[in-house]
Amino acid sequence: MNMAAPITRLRGETVTLAHGGGGRAMRDLIDEIFVAAFRPDAMEDQARLTHAALAKPGARLAFTTDSFVVTPLEFPGGDIGTLAVCGTVNDLAAGGAEPLWLSASFIIEEGMPFATLRRIVASMVREAAAAGVRIATGDTKVVERGSADGLFITTSGVGVIRAGRDLRAERIREGDVALVNGVLADHGATILAARGDLMVSTDIASDCRPLNGVMEAVLAAAPNARAARDATRGGLASALNEMAETAGVSVELDEAALPIRAEVKGVCEILGLDPLDLANEGALVVFVPTDEAESALAAMRAVPGGEDACAVGRAVTRGPVPVTMRTAFGGARIVDMLVGEQLPRIC
């Protein structure tokens, strides 16, 4: 039987300024690309949210927002839509929240191909389903050609923190163990290679993924977990420096324990970069008490996204610098925060 092609009111192959003008063209863009994918409950100017978790005694709301500006828009292992969902989900998860709802705002440059936009939206639907969240509301704007590097996305997220959970960097204590859920620096190295202007070619793919499943596993196995942070811009180095400064401790890393691919180390050596400064989009660091470290590691390794979990260091008495690393040669070096902009438009 011959199936007719789906009826579309969109004309041409790219977004035009008319698609941001508030009229029929804009409604066609929203209906055929966004509403068709996200399937909102109603076409109102706000989402109306209800969830059983909100009714439980002691439950608290968590709220976060982030903007995503990456070049190129599509890269091995993901695209800007993947980042927009996973980045916001992970910010909620690292605070101990169960992510529930997202908003998504799109700044679209005139000339954006509809086909590219559809692929990015499809990625957002897929990642939201994997994380168990609903994209509940959103907005679109169209700007003149050359004003937005193709596409910018802002997502905000709302989640629920169960009673009794209290993940804060200031709770880290001397002796606590620092755990990571998997390999580091893959995203930053992937973007470097995908841009093509550095003449670097690798088979590395971004680690972009939702981490709420990993965090739930950790919290079930290590109920006294102190704090967690997803190591995005600035990499593990910046995340640990921020946490150590807040907690009033120092962190000592073990270079031999750091899970970094040989290919990533090679790229960094060629370009004079430190892998600990490279962005991650599917890696988090969590501090747990020593007596809960092994159970937390076992729990992480049993869920998707945590298979390569390992202990990379521990909190120690505050010293002259927040973070140091024992090197493979038996010495020590300072691990400072990223200074300046290593890679613009990376997440």
Rank of each mutant, 00 (worst) to 15 (best):
A237I: 08
F152S: 08
P320L: 10
E127S: 02
D203W: 04
P289Y: 14
K141R: 15
I30Y: 05
R24P: 06
A169R: 07
V177R: 15
D207F: 05
R39Q: 15
T327S: 00
T50L: 04
A84R: 08
L29D: 13
T202E: 01
E292Q: 15
E13V: 10
G77T: 04
L167Y: 12
A194D: 05
G234P: 03
T16G: 15
A97I: 01
V200M: 09
D254I: 08
L73P: 01
V35R: 14
V121K: 11
R345L: 15
A299G: 07
D203I: 06
R195I: 09
N224H: 15
L102V: 04
T137Q: 11
N224A: 07
C347T: 08
V158M: 14
E32W: 08
D203L: 10
L17W: 02
P223R: 09
L10E: 02
N181Y: 09
G111T: 01
E294D: 12
G12Q: 02
S147L: 13
R173T: 05
A279V: 14
G146I: 13
S250V: 05
D308G: 00
P6I: 07
V286S: 12
T50F: 10
A131H: 14
R229A: 12
V142G: 11
M26V: 01
I172A: 06
I120C: 02
A328L: 10
G96Y: 06
D277K: 11
L17T: 07
A221E: 00
I153R: 03
T317Q: 02
A52N: 06
A18D: 08
A221T: 01
V15K: 13
A130K: 15
A227S: 12
F287M: 10
V160E: 02
D254R: 00
F75W: 05
F63L: 10
T16N: 04
T116S: 12
A328Q: 00
A231G: 02
G58F: 05
E216T: 06
T290N: 09
E292P: 01
F38D: 03
V316F: 04
G306T: 03
V312A: 00
D91C: 03
W101T: 08
M337I: 12
D197M: 05
A84V: 07
E252Q: 02
A217E: 07
